[in-house]
Design a protein around this nucleic acid. Structure first.
Lengths: 109, 109
DNA sequence: TGACAATATAACCACATAGTTATATGCTCA
DNA sequence: TGAGCATATAACTATGTGGTTATATTGTCA
């Protein structure tokens, strides 16, 4: 039986919490917007069609995970992507989902 | 400004729910065990040091996401990995976390 | 069929969290 | 300093879910 490197309970917990940060559609949407360039909270709020406190809260979660970083400019705060690997993760998930639905569709083909 | 392909709200929700499935340490641990080969619920329960109903519940979540598949053999049920991309995801997350901690450590070096 | 083992489900509790509204904080400019 | 804008936080509610205990289901074997 093949042997794979085991992750420690601590590492598993860290990985899980990283996944948890990405488990909210609104946060994924925010990341998607930020991918086009750093954006103020105000602009983000408009673009993701939510309320300002809600966006700030999600940004806080993303920042605590070091996925985004902030920069103050006057009275505005601009957020930007701080860890590009999130898009790699999304790509892998999307490919997997595509594959899955393709298989399911094939059942009825 | 660079343009990236935008995911629809439905796609974002699907991706988020996939991440959500992976956001529990116990489920990651189960996947880690299954990576070594298909395993019965009983054996899984021992290896992850949990209760049988709890393991069954997590397996149900993993199966609903098509990440694992089941096979009945006698009175036992064996589970196996059905989507290897989960390990790709874990690798990407681990690399990101490694990088992050390395940077943080460098601050005090 | 009856006893037993393996697994799944139901019911429940405790806790986390997404979203809202209200308010606090911080910056700019007159 | 005071008004006003931008952002963050506090308090709250509603909902989802991980873990537990109890029970149901399914299969084996005598």
């Amino acid at each position: 039986m093949a042997k794979y490197k085991q992750m420690s309970p601590e590492a598993l917990a860290l990985a899980a919490s990283r996944f948890k940060v990405l488990s909210e559609p609104m946060r994924l949407e925010i990341l998607q917007v930020l991918r086009h360039g750093e954006t103020s909270v105000n602009d983000l709020t408009e673009k993701v069609a939510s309320t300002q406190p809600n966006v700030s809260k999600h940004l806080r979660v993303l920042q605590d995970a070091d996925l985004v970083a902030r920069r103050r400019s006057g009275s505005s705060v601009f957020y930007r992507i701080a860890d590009e690997t999130v898009f790699k993760l999304c790509d892998v998930v999307c490919d997997s989902l595509k594959h899955k639905f393709k298989e399911q569709a094939a059942i009825f083909a």
